[in-house]
Amino acid sequence: MTEPISMRLHAAALPLWEAQLDHPFVRGIGDGTLEEERFRRWVLQDYVYLKEFARVFAWAVAKADRLESMGWYATVLDMTLNKEMALHRSYAERFGITEAELEAVSMWPTTRAYTDFLVRTAADGDMADLLAALLPCAWGYIVIGQALAGGDRPDDARYADWIDQYASEEFESAGTWLREELDRVVGAADVPTFTRLREIFLLSSRYELRFWDMCWEGEEWPAAEAGR
């Protein structure tokens, strides 16, 4: 009896996922010590990230092999574009970030590279590729949210709400559906399929880790002063 593909991918990426849980940015959310300046970077960059992430679900609607899956992706797409983006905007307000500021955000190199990777994999790959590319975000945030929810609640309500959102049952059930969908679509993976999906899954995991680095340190394009 072979382990489901999602579990095999998770095992392959475990060091990268553990490095995220151990990242000072993530730990700082958990204990409430993260400087607001660093977290603001996440709020801004994640907003532009989400727009592109929605495109991946749009591709999923187009590529799904059955009506039930098409409907599910369409619901997620609707939720992302018409609810989550609005939630993100009101959440940003709690950090003094206006809607105009959010709309004016330009992508830093890691955000740009990660979203380009996601949308081009969604466009060029099959459903398994698409799911392997998006799961490290969709599933990874749930793992982080649940891990942080297991500790003491941070005093800063904004961080506590962040944890609650990703540790919520709603996110948990969406994550489980996506994992099971990957397992269903792939079935018993042959070696080349596993190798391909592993590379995609690891790359997205690597980008997730790099996203925390970016928000922790700040990031610039080379010659940022010359580029504008």
Binding site: R112, A113, T115, D116, F117, V119, R120, A123, D124
Partner: peptide, 8 residues
């Protein structure tokens, strides 16, 4: 990724 996403 930029090239391929642009093309798509």
């Amino acid at each position: 990724q930029f090239l391929l996403s642009t093309a798509a």
